[in-house]
Design a protein around this nucleic acid. Structure first.
Lengths: 226, 226
DNA sequence: TTGGGGGCTTAACAAATACTTAACGTATAT
DNA sequence: ATATACGTTAAGTATTTGTTAAGCCCCCAA
């Protein structure tokens, strides 16, 4: 839950306060909005990792807001969780069909809320295009905006090539990427770099990340793991 | 929901029938198990996309089964949804901490179930989800993203040639591959290696897989069997 | 213009490891 | 029994990767 950016949307300030308090206590960065329209504006502005959206709101309701956010490139892949006062089957159906990722009903036990949001966030590791900060687990996160990674709290700015390589490798932790695939992905189809170029970049990454993060598979390629 | 492989686990056959019926109607391929232990076996065998797991079961319960499956390479990233008779906060907490992805409570409206599972399956990003794992039966699976095999829960990384050979042999379990065919497949048409080269690789594989998995056919070649 | 710095690549050599071979042992079929 | 094919082991060879330092290129500032 640390580093998560969460946007809360509800028309009751009391609910916002209650949820904000509990989520901030867990280390999340919390933003709020009071109705659907301002939620969309806010979401585009702050690019949250997760949006908690009340269904019943004056003006634009949650369902409609969700539907619209699913159209926008900035929020197309953002996790959206609905919130409602009662568990009604049709509103659940409508919510999921509008593109929701989960559904919570009030009154909320804060521990349940937090566990549930955690489970959602845990499942969403890699870049979905619009998302800026990607947590790849174990204290390592990647910031696509400024070409930096964070390792154990320390932020390290990486040169472009190194950043591209680590982004590729962490896009699927545990997978072995073949050298030739890395060449294609990073340098393009018609490769014109020497044999040792990748190795040098890998070496520099290892110096910055620690030696045990990137593992060599001789004759094949490299993989990233925690 | 089409093409989804779903494993249902519950100790009540009635529940299994009810859920199976509804999920199959949506085009899913459904497998079932009656308790935690057989669920794990089944999961390793069929490698489902999603597992619906009852919490209260005789023998190994759902929480424990989930926890164990999160340890196994075959099921580490599989979606797991818990099912329980009542909504109790701590069992939800325990469930999520065991690595669950969602939580449903009985009695289940089938439309809600389907919407919810759909939401889970839909948001699984292709590049971050499960590994490309092939189960070849009897506790042996091959991870193509990893150049590794799993034998009885233990993950073994193989050198390239060995991995290529075992991949070839397991591509058709039971079939006898002639030596010369193996040579052509792995080394190519015009590469000429000595007579004993294959034997050495086979030996190393046998050391890692167990002696009884690869059988020799004198004068012909080798075959893989369970 | 010139000099410096950072990033990227290359080259040369060292190190690691996968692959192959050779030599000999064992099993099997005719 | 003997020839033939396969098994086993250890040692050799080839290939791949690690490491380091140096060179180049581009951009920016003096």
């Amino acid at each position: 839950m640390k580093n998560a950016r969460i946007l809360l949307v509800d028309d009751e300030p009391d609910v916002l306060d209650f949820l904000s308090y509990n989520l901030r206590k867990e280390g999340s960065e919390v933003f709020t909005a009071l109705d659907g329209k301002s939620a969309i504006k806010k979401a585009i502005e702050v690019l949250p990792n997760l949006i908690v959206l009340d269904i019943m709101m004056p003006g634009m309701d949650g369902i409609e807001a969700c539907r619209r956010m699913r159209e926008l490139p900035e929020t197309k892949n953002t996790l959206i969780v609905f919130l409602t006062a009662r568990t009604e089957d049709y509103s659940q159906i409508a919510g999921f069909e509008a593109g929701a990722d989960d559904y919570l009903s009030k009154p909320l036990n804060p521990r349940v809320l937090i566990s549930r949001l955690n489970a959602l966030l845990r499942r969403r590791p890699t870049h979905t295009g619009a998302m800026n900060i990607v947590n790849v687990g174990n204290g390592i996160s990647i910031n696509n905006d400024n070409y930096s990674i964070t390792v154990g709290g320390e932020q390290i700015y990486l040169p472009k090539k190194e950043f591209e390589i680590i982004t590729l490798l962490t896009s699927k932790p545990g997978k072995v990427f073949r050298r030739e695939d890395i060449l294609h992905e990073i340098w393009g189809k018609d490769v014109v770099v020497g044999d040792r170029t990748i190795d040098v970049h890998i070496r520099k990454l290892r110096q910055k990340l620690g030696d045990d993060r990137i593992k060599t598979f001789k004759g094949i390629g490299y993989k990233f793991e925690f």
